[in-house]
């Protein structure tokens, strides 16, 4: 058991007109070698900013603080800009959502693949080229040597995302952070890319942090799941824990919103979560979900901590495990 990434009490504050936007409010997690951690939540929950904060790529105005931010034995908080540059793309790499815009149209696939490796490692062009071909074949691209000379516009979206994955693997990273890597892709290609990611992970043993809004993707690929709401982790557990016996009302609400072939009856009313996400500008006290929660009570206005049970399942709710489970079906009867 070795932790490659440890995050404790990560906060991201962004000054805006009318106050400070607390976009990420004390997120803690750790990632083991070879583990897949999924951060899931709806738009505005802070999941993308969490990933950018890890990479040190936050927008200039944003302020990052944390009690602990350790990657591969290096304290990211005290790392200089230079150190961050040598970490990024080498030991810690990132895959973005848009395969159309994250490759530079002016350079060939080969140049872009080899760039990071030539920058970070002492290798010759021939060695870099060899590794590029090796990885393109690994990600399932045929005629890899020929592809090196091609430009991004000559590839389809699915192929481009494969190239992005190959690129993220060039330097043998310890952790890959993937922000919605399959959202822009077609469903059949999404399945292929996810399969590829998990196979490569098993082979190279890197940690994977996957950020997505798609609970289906999360359920299938995650070892561990962080459900985020209003800048906080509201539930944290293994995929089976979170999807099998969700303990936070928000997680349960999200799952009830989804039509699931074989589970929901066609045409039946889907569940919904009433209300809207609270504004994150200014101080927020108590449970951020209480205005939308069917189980809310007055004490929720003061309750704001993660509970956990002996299996390592964490949830941020005033209800303890027994109560939460016993009332899991209540809302469905409304």
């Amino acid at each position: 058991m070795s932790k490659v990434l440890e995050v404790e009490n990560l906060r991201v504050d962004i000054p805006v007109a009318g106050g400070v936007l607390h976009a990420v409010r004390g997120v803690s997690f750790s990632l083991e070698k070879g583990e897949t951690l999924c951060i899931v939540g709806e738009s505005g929950c802070g999941k993308s900013l969490t990933s950018l904060a890890l990479m040190g790529l936050l927008p200039r105005a944003a302020r990052r603080t944390a009690d602990k931010l350790i990657f591969d034995g290096i304290d990211l908080q005290s790392a200089s800009r230079r150190q961050m540059q040598t970490i990024r793309g080498d030991r810690l790499s990132m895959i973005f959502q848009e395969p159309m815009t994250s490759l530079n149209p002016a350079y060939t696939i080969g140049d872009q693949l080899m760039e990071a490796m030539l920058w970070h490692k002492r290798v010759s062009r021939a060695e870099a080229r060899e590794r590029a071909i090796f990885l393109l074949e690994k990600v399932g691209i045929t005629g890899a040597a020929k592809r090196l000379g091609q430009y991004p516009h000559q590839l389809s979206g699915g192929l481009r995302q494969r190239v992005m994955i190959a690129m993220s693997l060039m330097c043998g990273p310890a952790v890959i952070i993937a922000d919605e890597p399959t959202t822009a892709l077609d469903v059949t290609i999404q399945a292929q890319i996810l399969l590829l990611l998990s196979e490569l992970q098993a082979e190279f043993g890197m940690g994977l942090v996957l950020i997505t809004h798609d609970l289906g993707v999360v359920a299938r690929i995650a070892d561990r799941v962080l459900v985020m709401y209003a800048g906080q982790v509201v539930e944290n557990g293994s995929a089976r824990q979170v999807f099998g016996a969700p303990l936070h009302p928000y997680t349960r609400g999200l799952l009830r919103c989804m039509p699931i072939p074989g589970r929901t009856r066609p045409g039946e009313r889907l569940g919904s979560i009433p209300g809207i996400v609270p504004s994150l500008i200014g101080e927020i006290r108590g449970c951020a979900f209480r205005d939308r929660c069917g189980h809310a009570r007055s004490a929720c206005a003061d309750f704001d901590r993660l509970r956990h049970n002996e299996t390592g399942h964490e949830w941020r709710c005033i209800m303890d495990e027994a109560e939460s489970l016993s009332r899991a079906d209540e809302l469905e009867d409304v």
Binding site: S272, I273, P274, G275, I276, D291, R292
Partner: peptide, 11 residues
């Protein structure tokens, strides 16, 4: 019953 739940909390 479905009168936009989003409405409820919107100023």
């Amino acid at each position: 019953e479905l009168s936009s739940p989003e409405d409820a909390a919107t100023p």
